[in-house]
Amino acid sequence: MLRLPPFELLRPSSLEEARSLLVEHGPGARPLAGGTDLLVNLKLGSTEAQTLVSLAAIPELCGIREEAGELVIGAMTPLAQVAASEVVRSRIPVLAQAASVVASPQLRAMGTLGGNLLLDTRCQWINQSHFWRAALGFCLKKDGSKCHVVEKGKRCVAAASNDTAPALLVLGARLVVLGAQERSMPLAELYSSDGAQHLTLAADELLVEVRVPLPEQSARSTQHSAYGKLRRRASIDFPLLGLAANLELDESKTVRAASLAAVALSAQPLSLPKVAAALLGVETSGAQLERAIVAAGALAQRRLKPLDNIPGDAWWRREMVPVLLGRTLRAALSDTGPVNGDPQ
């Protein structure tokens, strides 16, 4: 069977200890959360680590709590727990929906929210065994210099494949990160556009928690969100395209604020403010809505260009952009997400 390469395993029991171990062991050390991505990549040899710093024994990293109008979710909170959380389901359903469609039941029990946000980028030329990649001649994400997706490409275009990232983007989530100091940053700043180096965290920085502003609940404004995911199978698979939508409606059901984000395209999960802008001021109870959805879909399709990075038909994925966007928006407005690939 495919076995893990040797590494040192450290089990700090506090955040401070975890951080100092990361500092001490340098860039060869990697934090280990649920292991459902990192251990696979280590087995395949598409990632290397000399030291794993397990975060499993740090209690403060796990749990969901409300704090000053924000929902604070520990980075080590299992995805299954996020998906099942009553407060997440009722207040920020897009996150519960996204978490509920990650991989399979077992992997959601193991995988964590933080781990999903930090998921390595994916590509058909990298998520393979060392033997396979050697036969290929490797690629520029690791061990090689050539991109097999974009001819003469100099920058890795492996795709962000984390379902929860777009959900948290549309919710305006911020991250609390522990480095030399604790800092807070918008989620969008976590990602870079280079698939080989897609995270902006320093090697000794730890993702501690995710803070999501809880929408105000009032008669004058309601919030509606949904996540849509295309994949080949209705379980286990990574997204071929993921879209999150969050709409705020006023009392006349007119869109007062909108935000959209997508995943499984390029190295970053993408916020789509210009597309979202097409929805502002739209009366959702009238005929205007469908026109606005079509317009937003056309905009999105111009903006989003799926590549042959992840397996699947890139043409089809591109054609699906407006379709999935429309369905996700309608699901958001009717509070019926998540949207899956099932025929409608």
Partner: peptide, 28 residues
């Protein structure tokens, strides 16, 4: 609907794993 044992243009199996060769799950 799902399965395709395919060799790519480099002569490599396109996805020799049970993730990339998708066996229908109970929900499919």
């Amino acid at each position: 609907l799902f399965e395709h044992h395919t060799i790519n243009s480099r002569g490599l199996h396109a996805g020799p794993s049970l993730l990339d060769y998708p066996l229908a799950t109970s929900v499919d």
